[in-house]
């Protein structure tokens, strides 16, 4: 305890050893962070406004119709899409549908226990489907096969493999990447008017006509990207880790699409109040992050296209 106090009071003095700093970090997390913030740096050596490195691997699941594995720092998400044929609803006969589910298995974080569903999972799931449907990124009409008869039902499942903060951002990015990677399989109508999959080589002559020859990819317009910032006193920390989220409890998630429209601004409570100036700051940080993420996503998609050719 004496060593810790010494460390808390004055800098150095022979107590800079590995154990003492680690103990100080665990016993007094907030002062530990504040001393870093005072120097405009975070314990993982990032400046306050920069996000962690992000990598996208599309096509990670070969059995799915579209998939992506996204890593931001340690946070890892796997998104996969499975398509199924369904009959469309009476109200919208020429539209398919998209069902989004977010899963947090116990392996992703020490706070999730086996047998008990994570509290956060349904909330994030709702937030993701709100953002994706409200941003009008995908036209549900493109998922239609035969008007009034058959349409695609896309099941988009996002699995959190490692929850180390900014879950929504990474989940949204993985969902977007999986949708961009989605390959719609070829189907044709059989004699009874039912949809069957065209198997094997598509260049081979088939007796039946393929229904969706020119609709193999979704055209994504206005892709949404998001950035979560933590507000603490006057500081704004972009892309927080799980440790930072547990210590400073005011997250603000801004979702902007590629046309610079605000799709969602989500601030659920928290100790700090968001003034207009800090909101503007968060929005401008998000704008910068959107540019970054767009180029990372384009690069990932291009490199897989080259692999496939």
């Amino acid at each position: 305890m004496a060593a810790v106090k010494e460390d808390a009071g004055g800098r150095g003095g022979g107590f800079e050893g590995e154990m003492e700093v680690e103990a100080y970090r665990r016993l007094f997390p907030l002062p530990y962070y504040e001393r870093h913030l005072l120097e405009s740096v975070r314990p993982d050596a990032r400046p306050l406004s920069s996000a962690r490195d992000t990598s996208i691997a599309v096509g990670a699941v070969s059995s799915a119709d579209g998939s992506a594995l996204v890593k931001t720092g340690e946070t890892t998400m796997l998104a996969a899409i499975k398509l199924e044929v369904m009959s469309p609803s009476q109200d919208s006969p020429d539209e398919g549908s998209l069902a989004i589910d977010f899963h947090m298995p116990p392996i992703c974080s020490p706070t999730v226990r086996p047998g008990r569903p994570a509290e956060l999972a349904p909330v994030l799931s709702k937030q993701l489907s709100d953002v994706i449907s409200r941003s009008k990124m995908i036209h549900l009409k493109e998922l239609s096969l035969v008007s009034g008869k058959a349409a695609w039902m896309a099941y988009l499942d996002i699995y959190c493999l490692n929850a180390d903060g900014s879950l929504f951002d990474v989940a949204l990015l993985s969902a977007v990447a999986a949708l961009a990677h989605l390959h719609i399989p070829l189907v044709s109508l059989n004699d009874e008017g039912r949809i069957i999959a065209v198997s094997g080589d598509p260049s081979r002559k088939t007796t039946r006509e393929v229904v969706n020859k020119d609709k193999r990819k979704l055209s994504l317009n206005s892709v949404p990207f998001s950035l979560t910032c933590l507000l603490h006193k006057d500081y704004i920390l972009a892309d927080p880790t799980a440790e930072e989220e547990s210590i400073m409890d005011t997250p603000v998630t801004v979702v902007l699409d590629s046309l610079d429209c605000l799709v969602s601004l989500y601030k659920p409570g928290g100790a700090a109040l968001a003034l207009t100036s800090s909101l503007k700051e968060c929005v401008s940080l998000t704008r910068r992050r959107v540019q970054e993420l767009r180029s990372i996503l384009d690069e990932a998609l291009q490199s897989t296209e080259m692999d496939e050719d």
Partner: peptide, 15 residues
């Protein structure tokens, strides 16, 4: 009192 405690938004609009 101008600080926002909670904000949620649905639908796209300009900043």
């Amino acid at each position: 009192e101008h600080g926002i405690i909670t904000s949620t938004s649905y639908g796209s609009m300009s900043v």
